[in-house]
Design a protein around this nucleic acid. Structure first.
Lengths: 270, 270
DNA sequence: CGCGGAATTGAAGGGCTTCAATGGTGGTGG
DNA sequence: CCACCACCATTGAAGCCCTTCAATTCCGCG
């Protein structure tokens, strides 16, 4: 682990914050003055552990990380995957004791920012506070979609949904294109994220390959049938709040059924 | 549906915000000046629908609500339950298009607050912005715990965990005591929240009654074996960030296994 | 008192798990 | 540069948790 001052970290942060709001010059410069330290971490090391009371947040500059908890009998639930541009522990700014662990999946480069500085920054600049707040809200939106998948989708649909999400998130930070993206995680990681077993994930991937939906080898995912994958997983990108591109799925045709299809009414609906 | 000016609504809001932070007099008075309108809604009506772009937030004053989405074939996933004191659509303040519906489960009384007023309030008072932000972070913490349950726990454990959570949340706003609380939802609602079928929920409840863990009748839950329910569900209240009481489970004895129990290391751990 | 939603029960089946073993592969060191 | 060795991926068989389908009973409410 080394540490040094840095600027690219802050330009990545500013790009992130400006993805939704437009920052004033004063705000941008205030971010620019944030003190950061760069750290490089090996793969599969905890960044923050459950029960910790962090004094810093970390901005991922390179590599993948994940939130997770361990349960009895060694069961692990991965709660989220994090890629460059993410601030996975931003919440620790307002919730002192962290209720899950944060760990690297690959070798990771992070920028460390003191809570103190972020508190001062957001207190002085409401626009920045809103931008950071929004970032944690998007994080929750992804979490909701994971709950939907885990609760309602079959393993095949769930894996498809995860791949769609990760591809779009990676593309939005310039790390994917042409339906190809890095996928530097194991089948066991995917299993623990989806609440399934590695054995079953393996069988699902076999079938995806067999149906020529994807290829996945050498830590690289290629989606060969994007539209099909979207359809199978009922993927609607609205929750990611990304700018749309020509070949993207149209948020207006959200593949969810808003009709009354159960024998009991589906909670209200008008 | 009726509507009228109100003050009890704001006192409930202030109590909520002060549960963590301490507000200054100026902040408290600023909240006090928020314009609110009171509405009464029938049971099982949508408050906000997926795709809407709300211009107001709603503070629940009485009754229960839930977030949910509909999937193909009439499948429904409930994403959260909401009780008095909650602001289930606070996120709409910074995420324009809502990606799920919000509906009443019982007859509900809400206070409606314009986004405009909340934006002005949080822009002027960073402490209040932080308090509202924190509220959405706690919401996400509950969501994470639901994902853990759905991904890793058996139906029996999952139901137990839900009951523990709801009891503590209700008690924290004065709506429960002595291990008894209202539970005005159907077994189908529980099933859709847990990603299970009503039939199976019914069987789980049968067994819970048979083992004298709970009684559940007339929309009232009585937990007859609190400690046992905590143990079974590996319930750790840390994520709720509530003040502790004498008979509460101790956050320090979090029942999660932080040892290395898998044949592959559980992501890091130093 | 009768209606409709909710709860309950039984039987059969399916998606996924568990257990156990084998095959593959990338990274490291000699 | 190649060989070794964890770790990861893959495969098969048996079993279980939960689902599906279909009645039937219970219960709150007008």
């Amino acid at each position: 682990m080394n540490s040094a001052p840095d600027q690219p970290a802050l330009s990545m942060l500013i790009r992130k914050l400006e993805s939704a709001a437009t920052l004033s010059d004063a705000e941008r410069q205030a971010v620019w003055r944030l003190p950061t330290r760069i750290h490089t971490l090996d793969a599969r090391k905890n960044i923050v552990s459950e029960g910790d009371q962090p004094t810093h947040c970390c901005l991922i500059l390179d590599g993948w990380a994940c939130r997770y908890v361990m349960l009895r009998e060694g069961k692990r639930q991965i709660l989220s995957f994090h890629i460059p541009g993410d601030i996975p522990d931003l919440q620790s700014l307002h919730i002192p004791t962290i209720d899950h662990s944060l760990a690297t999946l690959t070798k990771v480069v992070v920028a460390i920012i003191p809570h103190e500085s972020l508190r001062e920054l957001t207190a002085r600049h409401p626009g920045l506070a809103a931008a950071f707040w929004r970032d944690t809200l998007l994080d929750a939106a992804v979490l909701r979609e994971w709950l939907i998948s885990t609760g309602q989708r079959l393993a095949f649909e769930h894996v498809a949904h995860l791949f769609c999400e990760l591809y779009l998130r990676l593309r939005s930070v310039g790390l994917a294109e042409d339906h190809r993206c890095p996928m530097p995680i194991t089948q066991t990681d995917i299993a623990d994220a989806l609440g399934l077993t590695p054995v079953h994930i393996n069988r699902v991937l076999q079938e995806m390959r067999g149906r020529t939906l994807i290829t996945l080898q050498g830590r690289m995912l290629v989606i060969k049938a994007w539209d099909e994958l979207l359809r199978i997983s009922e993927f609607d990108p609205t929750y990611l709040q990304l700018e749309r591109r020509p070949d993207d799925p149209t948020p207006t045709t959200r593949a969810r059924w808003n009709g009354q299809l159960r024998h009991q009414r589906p909670v209200g609906l008008r």
